[in-house]
């Protein structure tokens, strides 16, 4: 059984400028011990999706629909109290992008890790301190017994992120969410952190959801990838499969826009246009405004995730795979073998 099953998650923000459909029907699963990469441009809704998992969405945002099953338990049914007590920190923990601002500047690194331990476990403050030193050692902070009493601003950027990771590990969670944990770091430091992720996953046997916009990073740490575009998952597959055999036009162009050493700039194929607004997303397939293979139906039908894999799970939300095989023209939906595409309701704003 999967550790985490997200189905048709919708998280909207109700602002004076209209409803922002930041996450609009996202589904994915994370197996025990697995590491899932959630990839997409900024504005795709990755961060909102993972924050929704932990119930961290605040006014004017709200989870309006969908199910989040963690270890068989429906998280959307839990109260704030229950989430806090049973889930946050001890079952699921999260690592934020900018460790510098994610750590409280007026408390020492130790105080912050210890507080998390004391709040979530029945360890005494003394035990919590020992544990915190141990954790800092684990994440590669030199001299942890001394540096535990330093303030975040006394740490370098990479060390701040390591301290954040130590905090995430503090209560032995089974799922760690990493929200762009290396984006703010220099490339060299980034490599060290990615290595650390590999190590801790091995040592602590946690599952992981790794949010990033960088496919290169995904290769380092993730088993499987879900590609998001404008609030939806458009393709999901094991990393190698996705990289070798991308099906969705968006994934294809994402892979084409990654610079690799053996490519010249001419071969790069950046994605044209900009992502439309999530206040008034395009009807039907949301990528169609930037898609090179758009058909007439794309504006009317919202593509569900079609199975396109051979032996492993590979799904994509593109009408060209309506019956599981790629073709030039999409079939009309009455002849579909998998679930029929849904006719999009007219969005009014």
């Amino acid at each position: 059984m999967s550790l985490l099953e997200v189905e048709d998650l919708q998280t909207y923000f109700f602002t004076s400028d209209g409803i922002v459909r930041a996450v609009d029907g996202v589904s994915f699963e994370v197996e025990t011990g697995e590491s899932l990469g959630l990839v997409g441009e900024s504005g795709a809704g990755k961060s909102v999706a993972v924050k929704s998992l932990m119930g961290l969405i605040r006014e004017p945002g709200r989870i309006v629909n969908g199910s989040i099953k963690y270890d068989g338990q429906e998280l959307t049914d839990l109260s704030e109290q229950e989430l806090r007590r049973d889930i946050r920190g001890n079952e699921i923990s999260i690592i934020f992008q900018d460790a510098m601002s994610a750590l409280n500047p007026v408390f020492t690194v130790g105080e912050q890790i210890e507080e998390v331990i004391v709040e979530n476990t029945d360890r005494s403050p003394t035990e919590a301190r020992e544990r915190a030193i141990e954790l800092l050692d684990d994440v590669g902070i030199p001299d942890p017994a001394q540096r535990i009493d330093e303030y975040p601003h006394q740490y370098s950027g990479g060390m701040q992120q390591r301290a954040m990771i130590a905090m995430a590990l503090a209560c032995d969670p089974r799922l760690i969410i990493a929200d762009e944990p290396t984006t703010a770091l220099d490339v060299t430091i980034q490599a060290g952190i990615l290595e650390l992720f590999d190590e801790i996953q091995e040592k602590y046997e946690t599952s992981m959801v790794y949010v990033t916009h960088d496919l290169g990073v995904v290769r380092e740490v993730c088993d499987r990838v879900a590609v998001m575009y404008l609030g939806r998952v458009v393709e999901s597959a094991p990393y190698e499969e996705l990289y070798r055999n991308p099906k969705h036009p968006y994934t294809q162009s994402l892979i084409n826009s990654v610079v690799t050493p053996d490519e010249t700039l001419d071969e790069l194929d950046p994605i044209g246009g900009t992502m439309p607004s999530a206040v008034s997303p395009p009807s039907g397939c949301r990528f169609r405004t930037r898609c090179s293979v758009e058909f007439g139906e794309c504006s009317q039908l919202t593509p569900p995730l079609y199975d396109v894999g051979d032996e492993e799970t590979h799904t994509t939300a593109c009408l060209r795979y309506d019956d599981g095989v790629e073709r030039e023209e999409p079939a009309l939906h009455e002849s579909t073998t998998s679930e029929p595409a849904v006719v999009e309701e007219q969005t009014d704003d």
Binding site: F13, S16, V20, S42, G43, G45, S47, G61, A278
Partner: peptide, 18 residues
């Protein structure tokens, strides 16, 4: 407002209150 935010990945904090 959302318009001013520039949709930067819908950072929850960014869209907070009018």
């Amino acid at each position: 407002t959302v318009e001013d935010v520039g949709y930067d990945d819908f950072d929850v904090d960014a869209i907070l209150e009018d």
